[in-house]
Amino acid sequence: MFNIKPSQRSGFNLVLSLGLLLVIWQLSASYVNSSVLPSPTAVLLQLILSIKSGDLPYHLGITLSRLIVSFLLAMLFGIAIGLLLGRHKKTDDFFDSWLIILLNIPALVTIVMCYVWFGLVESAAILAVVVNKLPNVIVTIREGAKNLDEELLQMAKTYRFGRFKTLQHVVLPQLYPYIMASARTGLALIWKIVLVVELLGRSNGMGYQIHLFFQLFDITSILAYTVSFIVLIQLIEISILKPLDKRSRQWKVN
């Protein structure tokens, strides 16, 4: 009866489910009727206000730049170390316990230690975020590196590909799903950690702002900032990660 494309249907479902969430939020806000749970419209108005005043774009920009720098550093080193450990069993056996320790240090401890050792400076903040994300990337990439196709590596060796060509054409395409997985989880994890880092030792960025709003008991602003960031992360997903995914899958039949 209806001729709806699957992509349209999923878009429709998304609108429906987000709409439901908004309705629940609105209803509970009007039921509670208190400043601790502002209604979606109040949050939206506050969001527009903060954008107009320039506060939100400034702090959001700061947080975003911290996120991008620490994300790239964590991915770069994570891929390199993960590849090394995945391909060299002896090194992996030796450093495995280090990795487990790193994985289990609470994020808060790393942040505090970085600030104590290196002072309340930008590089300490970035380092704290990278150290928190790094072990996750390493573990994921290591798994991928262990599962590399030996036959294709042999092929690359007989046809004298060399190190760089092998990495680019044989190894990285195989690691791609693992890289994407750690990029996705990484983005979500890193922005949460960046906020804590900012809250504890920076005088700008979203974490700092939220701390401020908390002291002023301005819940509407806290939610407005949160919404703006969630939208931003979604935009990154849609405009960067999804197209990358699609491009890397074009060789697959179906």
């Binding site: 036959e151 294709l152 042999q154 092929m155 046809y159 590909f161 060509k165 054409h169 395409p173 060789w251």
Partner: peptide, 22 residues
């Protein structure tokens, strides 16, 4: 040069790329 038991082509590269890379 080596022709293996299985073709061992890079699935994510085109036929042309596979040959030119080698």
């Amino acid at each position: 040069s080596y022709v293996f038991q299985t073709p061992r082509l890079l699935p994510w590269r085109t036929v042309l790329d596979n040959i030119q890379l080698a």
